[in-house]
Design a protein around this nucleic acid. Sequence first.
DNA 1: GCCCTGACGTGAA
DNA 2: ATTCACGCCAGGG
Length: 118
Amino acid sequence: MPEPPDTNPSFAAIYSALRDIPAGTVVSYGELARLAGLPGRARLAGTALREARGEDAPTWYRVIRADGSLAFPPGTESHRRQRKLLESEGVIFAGNRVQRADPVSENIVDAALWGPST
DNA sequence: GCCCTGACGTGAA
DNA sequence: ATTCACGCCAGGG
């Protein structure tokens, strides 16, 4: 019997942190890793989501790159799927990037938050 | 065990 | 805004 990926404590921590991300909120891989108690291990967060089963990371789509772009290349099926899921939760896109809440900008919705805490 | 790849991030050129 | 070089470390061959 092969063991599931979440037998690794690090992976489990990442999945757990991911479940704490509220709907309509996006975090970067680095943020997710930091929330999981693994600062500097952004890449590990990516690996965890890559290896994740649907049950481990039901909200995988709320994780994006630090620069606001999606990990999947634009035009791919995965990219479109993730974008659609995010937009259905109120996340605003500007081109291929997630638009952050901007104080000086116009009527931007407050649904596009990044890090839950500071 | 060695080597390369990679759902990443940051700083410099 | 874009490209490059590094640092990081788990997986797969």
